[in-house]
Structure formats: C-alpha cells, structure tokens
Design a protein around this nucleic acid. Sequence first.
DNA 1: GTAATAGTGTCTATCAGACACTATGCC
DNA 2: GGCATAGTGTCTGATAGACACTATTAC
Lengths: 243, 243
Amino acid sequence: MYADPWEPPQVLVAVDLVVFTVRGSHLHVVLIERGIEPHRGALALPGGFLRDDAEDLLAAAYRELAEEAGLTARHVHLEQLGVYGTPGRDSRGRVVSVAYLAIAPRLPEPVADTDAAAAGWVPAEYALSPAARLAFDHREILADGVERVRSKLEHSTLATAFVGPTFTVSELQSVYEAVWGVRLDPRNFYRKVQGADGFIVPAGPARRATNGRPARLFRAGPSATIRPPLTRPTGPADQEAHA
Amino acid sequence: MYADPWEPPQVLVAVDLVVFTVRGSHLHVVLIERGIEPHRGALALPGGFLRDDAEDLLAAAYRELAEEAGLTARHVHLEQLGVYGTPGRDSRGRVVSVAYLAIAPRLPEPVADTDAAAAGWVPAEYALSPAARLAFDHREILADGVERVRSKLEHSTLATAFVGPTFTVSELQSVYEAVWGVRLDPRNFYRKVQGADGFIVPAGPARRATNGRPARLFRAGPSATIRPPLTRPTGPADQEAHA
DNA sequence: GTAATAGTGTCTATCAGACACTATGCC
DNA sequence: GGCATAGTGTCTGATAGACACTATTAC
C-alpha cells in the first residue's frame, strides 16, 4: 500500500450537512438556495470545502453548521453519515464530500449566509420529493440521512438530541412520531421509554402545564443504546439487498 | 457554500479495507505487514491511494481488495464504514481515508502483494490488542469495523455474507458465535432463523454429512433486514455517549 | 363540573430462552 | 447399537400492544 511510484491524485474535500429537527409534527431539514454556480438557484444541503490543510473534518462540519445553518455547537448532535465521491458529481472537478448528520433541538431558525441566498427548514418529505430539485447528489445524501435517523431511533437514544436539555415524555414521543411518520400509543410509549434502562432520567418536578395535567421533566440518561430496542410499527417487509 | 475566493486545499484520498471472515470459531481480519515507510514493518489494513481522478471510491475498494488482499469481487460484500481524516494521521501530508468493510466467505487465503511484505488472516481479537501495534489510526478503524459487523448481525442479514452461496443453519450459527464471541443454543437459533421472514430460503435437499445427521442447505433470502432482530445476549448496559 | 393531557394497571397473544425429544446420518 | 448432529415440540417467564382507569391541571 501507498508504494506506487506515481503521484496519487489530489482531490477537493467538502463537508455537507444534513441538519434535522422536528417542527410541528414533521421532520425538517435545513436547505439553502445556492447563490453561485454550479446549480445556482437550486436547493442544496449546507456545506463547503475544507478551509485549509489543518482543519479536522468534524471541525469543518461545526464551522459550516455555524456559517451556513446559523446553528452554534451548543446542544447540536453531530455524527458522520458517509462519503460521497463519485467522479463527476461536481462539475468543478473531483470532489469528495463527507456528509455529517446533525440533530438540532426544536428551537432556532437558520439564517442565510454569504453564498447562500436563503436558508430554512424544509419538511424532509418535501425535500425528498422530485419537486424539490436538489443540487448535486444531495437528494441521495438526504435520503441516507433520513434512513439513518429513522433506524437509529430504534436502538439508540438519539431521539433526545431532538429535544431540549429537559423534556417531557410526550415531547419525546412526538419526535418518534415525526421521524417515523406514525402514531404511537402514549401509554405504551411511556412504559417502554421508562423501562429502557438509562434512556431518560427524572429532572426535577413536574411543570409546564398547558392543557391537562403537568408532565414530569426528564433529562437524557447515560445510555447510548436502548435495550430492548423500540421497534417501529411494521410496514411491509423490505426486499432490498444490503448496501 | 463553495463560494470563497481562495483555492480550497487539495488532499490525498486513500481507501482502506477492513476485511473480515470467520475461520475456526473466531473472527479474522486481513492485515498486511507494511513494506515501505511510514510505519515500515508495522501491521496495517490493506489499502492505498486513489489511482486517478476518475476512479470511483467503491471501485478503488474493489481494486485494493484484489491487489492487496488477494480477493476477487466474487461473493465479497463491500460497504462503506467511515471516513478518517484527522490532520496528522499520516506523516506524508493531509490524507483522508475512506474505510470500507468487506465480508468474505470462509474460503480463500490472502496473498502478499508488491508493497506488502506479508498478508494474512489475523484474529480480530489479537489485532485489536495492544500487542499488534497497527499503523496509522488503523486500530480505531478496525474497532469501528468490529462494532459495525457485530451490530449489523442483529438486525440485518449480513451474516450470510460470511458463508458460501449455500450453507447450513449451523454454519450460520457459527458465524454469529464467532462474531459475537458467545455460544448460542442450536435449537432456539434454528427456530429464530427459520422464523425471520426472508432471511434464509431452502436450497436443495440435505447433504454434507460429517458426523451426525446431514443438514439441509439454504441460500440467503430476499430480505436485507431481520424483523424481529436477533438480539445478542445481554452484556452489561453500555454507558457511552452517542458518537 | 368538563376538557385535556399525564401516568398506572391489567389483560392477552406472542416471543425468547430452556430443554426434552425425535430424526437421520456415520461408525 | 452407540454417537453425533439436525430438527421439532413444549413449557415458562417476559414482553408488546390494546385499552380501562386514575391523577392533576386549566377553564
């Protein structure tokens, strides 16, 4: 390995972000309208090239999160999603893009930046529809991100990244319902979540009465995984080959 | 995005492979002994730089699989594992490595190539131990690969990639036992696997009698996922933060 | 009081794990 | 027959989903 006499090719490395949140009862993703070519005017995931040779990939992701999506690192979950490096995916040359999955709590509104004509939360379902016309291969990246987050809700505690530092069980339930696109029984959800060891832990007494009885507050627990997993309601059995 | 006036930095892109198989009753990984600097003489994952600007990442992975691990694409499962791009991880400059996870059936013995002084199947447990002294950040990549394959055995049909085109239930069981490092009850495993829709389908009548009663042969079924999942025996609850 | 949401209890069909038992090969 | 592995049946405790019921707030 690494022994060939020729000089290996140099490529450009970009970082793209799939930033999710739950608004209302739907999963939303940050899209920007591209202000420059290529794909000027099309919708795209926020992202950009590595700033310099010394910048770490994760650091670049945090930087783009702030610059392009207007989100500070506070309380934003970031994890690597995958690499997209098909030749020809970017007309400017060989670009390998490292995609990151970001989960933001409900709160903030993203803001447009220098080269992004506009930035905003778009329903993921719409963003994946043909009507949205995403730039580059961003539709594929987004689809992978949606599948990742749906899957991780089953056996990890990722859902807590969608809510604030403290939250009620029904807030957590609305995350599952939005991401999975299903309705869940509140009573069974409550028991399930309570029974999963280390998923959520009590955080102070109840408050936040809106309509009915005030709900207890919880914080994310120490576990990263849920055992046994929370299974999403069974759709038709899938027939895909493994990728 | 993509709008800054400066020229973004060019980086080298490498592809590294975590190639697993099951031999005897243990998970093995292909390691080579590096024939050149840096890390000459150390053990490393097979891999190498992108050949040219037009080479697809997956194609490069298949090429390295053949060149460095001596495995042809026939029946080898390949999927992306992650990107490793920390500055300084390679002394030759900024190198971003795309790691691929490969699963090979039991059969072949890997062969050394040009720049690899030796290649061979090494027990994964030993390769992860401090005694093995892997080059670069390959220990971390390998650890991620092990965790990935352990996890995917639970809810995907990946285990069938470890065995030949046709296999017996007990062969499949030995894959689970080797990867998870546990013993499973053959009777319950049999029922579980049979009950998972689309996991395995009958392939011809029984044969292959070695000691006792000949076992039926099966092929991999159409499903990519197992519902309900095969849960690995519970160890102590994990306490990691999600990555 | 009514309305609305939070939280608990209970029932039932199903499932995971333990393990007895039968089946079918080799010697 | 003896031995070994393949495959089936059955029992039991736990669990998922359905849903009745109680608790606590706002009005």
